[in-house]
Design a protein around this nucleic acid. Structure first.
Length: 480
RNA sequence: GCUCCCAUCGUCUAGCCCGGUCUAGGACAUCGCCUUUUCACGGCGGUAACAGGGGUUCGAAUCCCCUUGGGAGUACCA
């Protein structure tokens, strides 16, 4: 039996970090088992759903490299359509079937009646469980007549009086007691079916074998178990992954800041890093590796390494993972990415050799691709570096002004575009011999004279990357 | 409230299922030291956790119960 998994987002907003994580787990599981990854759109809530969001979410998924085998954007597929809004007749058919079997019934209650029931229940300290006004099979004939006359009614599922047990891949055995839920609506009075109903029918019809989704669905599952049973359908395996939480330990949501994938995409985070980090929240590598890409992980991915407790989404660690992926990346690809960044004219117009050594040097300090232009501007192109206290302190050493005078004189003499590492070493040697400076005063002095900073990348790599024209202007600025 | 789920360093986690090898391992962050004739690189190291209480057992982070804490669900949303 081939594994078939699905990711089923509602197109009611941007792709969320948490959604991306569940999608990733499904994708990984499909790849690891040679299975099929299905994308299904759960857009039965017409008021909140929006086709634009569907497209945006698919784009974000694609950006992350989480590609589906089946979905609404692919033609001629066996299980189509993949949008719930296009499957209304299917749900209708099954709902009618359940009514015919007495497993569901029409409910003519008005919103006001329902509201009154809820208030009464709240007052009595009970759960607002539907009392079953139209539950009696004796109403069946009457209900059918009213419906055939065009009257509107919701369809409710008749909840069996028994408890249910789920063997969850992550949570273990979960027991849902009898009376946990009241008869619930499966089709709204406007004719549109409801999530718990569609979901089961689709998973059944699409032959989904494993449902990997967020823990927020764990309580829902009992309703779904009931429907599988009523349908006489085989239940898939379930894996309820723990939720992502924010710093306040609440379920991650918009108010925690950057929680949509497109924000990270816009900031040019590396998609591989994003997946790497997301994968690690709630799942652990069998050999405790923490930097990997999808191809590595597919070989070892399994459902038995999930943590059962929620995981806090932490930007600091994401940052680190991203920086590790930058270091891992080859320089040529990195250069391509950097050149797509704004304000990189100078970078783009240099020769390959320059770019290669620049990237090689800067990647040690960059956490994000967007750091490269910043680094280049700050470290290489800045002609007017801020004279920090640390710089002024170095300037106050008695040897520093002498070093500056010498360096300035040497730089002034240069007519080439760049100075070489050898030339730099030469200057350092001369300062050492002629001025008798060595050790910390020497290097700090030379660094201060050339860069205006008290720290930074190795001078022998940094200075040969800096245009002589910049050096000249910078030194004038620094000596003032 | 009710139902379900969860509980190891500040954070992500390994270990738990199959009790001894755990004076609890790794990673991020943080701190310190070393090295590179300077430094934001690199190397090494430190601080830091089994929520509490009862059992079971020769022995419990690991099994059971209770308490506490946290989370989720409780819709004609998904």
């Amino acid at each position: 039996m081939t594994v078939r998994v699905r990711f089923a987002p509602s197109p009611t907003g941007y792709l969320h970090i948490g959604g991306a994580r569940t999608a990733l787990y499904n994708y990984l599981f499909a790849k690891a088992t040679g299975g099929v990854f299905v994308l299904r759109i759960e857009d039965t809530d017409l008021e909140r759903s929006n086709a634009e969001y569907e497209k945006l979410q698919i784009d974000d998924l694609k950006w992350l490299g989480i590609t589906h085998d089946e979905g609404p954007d692919k033609p001629n597929q066996k299980y189509a359509p993949y949008r719930q809004s296009e499957r209304a007749d299917i749900y209708q058919k099954y709902a009618l079937e359940l009514i015919a079997k007495g497993l569901a019934y029409y409910d003519f209650c008005t919103d006001e009646e329902l509201e009154a029931m809820k208030e009464k229940a709240a007052l009595e300290g009970r759960d607002p469980i539907y009392e079953g006004k139209w539950k009696d099979v004796a109403f069946y004939q009457e209900a059918c007549e009213r419906i055939s006359k065009g009257e509107k009614a919701a369809i409710r599922f008749r909840v069996p009086k028994k408890s249910y047990t789920l063997e969850d891949k992550v949570k273990g055995t979960v027991v849902y007691p009898e009376n946990m839920v009241g008869d619930f609506v499966i089709v709204r009075s406007n004719g549109l079916p409801v999530y718990n109903f569609c979901c089961v029918i689709d998973d059944h019809l699409m032959e989904i074998t494993h449902v990997i989704r967020g823990e927020d669905h764990l309580n829902n599952t009992v309703r779904q178990l009931m429907i599988y049973e009523a349908l006489g359908a085989k239940t898939p395996e379930f894996a309820h992954v723990s939720l992502l939480i924010g710093h306040d330990r609440q379920k991650l949501s918009k108010r925690h800041g950057a929680t949509s994938v497109n924000l990270y995409r816009n900031e040019h985070y590396l998609p591989e890093a994003m997946c790497n980090y997301l994968c690690l929240l709630g799942w652990s590598h069998p050999t405790e590796r923490d930097i990997f890409d999808k191809t590595d992980i597919v070989e070892v991915f399994s459902l038995d390494r999930f943590s059962a407790s929620p995981a806090m989404y932490d930007l600091e660690k994401l940052k680190w993972v991203n920086s590790e992926h930058i270091k891992k990346m080859n320089n040529a690809s990195l250069i391509k990415l950097i050149e797509k960044e704004p304000e990189t004219e100078f970078f783009r117009t240099q020769d390959t050799e320059w770019k290669m050594s620049c990237v090689e040097l800067m990647k040690k300090y960059a956490n994000f691709v967007t750091d490269f232009p910043k680094l280049v501007n700050e470290l290489i192109l800045n002609e007017h570096p801020e004279k920090t206290d640390a710089f002024k302190e170095i300037l106050a050493w008695e040897t520093t002004p002498k070093i500056m005078a010498f360096i300035s004189q040497e730089v002034e003499k240069k007519s080439s575009d760049f100075i070489t590492e050898n030339e730099l070493n030469n200057w350092i040697d001369q300062v050492k011999k002629n001025l008798g400076v060595k050790g910390k005063p020497l290097f700090q002095g030379v660094r201060a004279a050339l860069t205006g900073h008290d720290h930074g990348p190795d001078l022998k790599f940094l200075i040969p990357l800096t245009p002589v024209s910049v050096l000249k202007n910078r030194i004038v600025h620094l000596r003032k």
